[in-house]
């Protein structure tokens, strides 16, 4: 359903993602795992056709995200990381607008909006201004706008970010309920979340998610400048180990492995996020 090959994206001299490849099958829920600044959002922005990659290719539902962007956009629901919604709109009219833009007819639209509000548990706030909603409700409105057109593929960028524990549980069970009907790719930096939400606890690790030897933050741009013959072998070994970690056991087992992953990504990104 999703096919990514050697995807690279540069922001000026900095490579946000470097040679990322992975595939997702129909109906799977796949976690996109990595520390902050690993390039998860960048990959998702490329998949959702918001911006092009520097090189490499990505296909969603068999269509190329760059050359057949309209076809891709008709088939995806996307939730960006910061859940950008129109704060001056009310929930129901907003969802109706999204459904209309996505080409759903009038009568069908009313039914879909009602259904989606039920599924996301936001029917009780349908007449409230989005700007007045709590973070948890906003997040659910964001997910609702992504699934309102019943798209084949859902791209959710950190759907549980900034929620309280109860809301996190609610969002997770909501996403779980989407499996099978939709192909879901969601990003997170919380390893247990993958095993809780994703089908068979499957996760894809972008390049930047690779644990660095000291456990400290690394910069891919710098590392590329230093050729290291042993690196490929170590990387293969590391990949194999992580695959075991993530795919392997139930919820209890990966939890122990959290310490293996770097707790922090790029310090400047973290600092900016904290400040924000």
């Amino acid at each position: 359903m999703i096919e990514v090959r050697n995807l690279t994206k540069h922001y000026g001299p900095i490579a946000a993602i470097n040679n990322v490849s992975f595939g997702v099958e129909r109906g799977e829920v796949v976690g996109f795992l990595g520390p902050n600044g690993a390039g998860k959002s960048t990959t998702m922005r490329i998949l959702s056709c918001f911006m092009p990659a520097s090189s490499g290719s990505a296909k969603v539902a068999g269509y190329d995200v760059f050359s057949q962007s309209m076809e891709v956009r008709r088939r995806i629901g996307y939730l960006p990381e910061n859940v950008p919604l129109y704060s001056d709109m009310r929930v129901a009219p907003y969802l109706d607008f999204v459904a209309e833009v996505k080409g759903i007819g009038r009568s069908e639209r009313r039914r879909r909006v009602a259904e989606v509000m039920d599924r996301c548990l936001i029917a009780d706030v349908q007449n409230r201004l989005i700007g007045r909603l709590s973070k948890g409700y906003r997040q659910r409105v964001g997910i609702a706008q992504a699934i309102v057109s019943d798209p084949e593929v859902l791209i959710l960028d950190e759907p549980t970010l900034g929620l309280d524990p109860k809301q996190i549980t609610e969002i997770r069970s909501l996403i779980k309920s989407l499996a099978g009907r939709h192909t879901v790719i969601l990003s997170t930096h919380i390893l247990p979340e993958v095993s809780m939400v994703c089908s068979a606890g499957r996760a894809v690790l972008p390049d930047g998610a690779r644990p660095s030897p000291g456990g400290g933050p690394t910069r891919r741009g710098q590392r590329r400048d230093r050729p290291d013959p042993g690196r490929a072998a170590r990387r293969a070994a590391g990949d194999e180990r992580r695959r075991r970690d993530v795919r392997g056991g139930g919820p209890a087992e990966p939890r122990r492995e959290v310490g293996d992953l770097p707790a922090r990504g790029r310090p400047e990104v973290d600092a900016a996020r904290t400040a924000a």
Binding site: F50, M70, R73, I76, N82, P84, S87, V101, G103
Partner: peptide, 14 residues
Amino acid sequence: KSGTIELLLTYPVR
């Protein structure tokens, strides 16, 4: 500024 452009421009609209 609010980031809504990211959603708007990923809807199937030219």
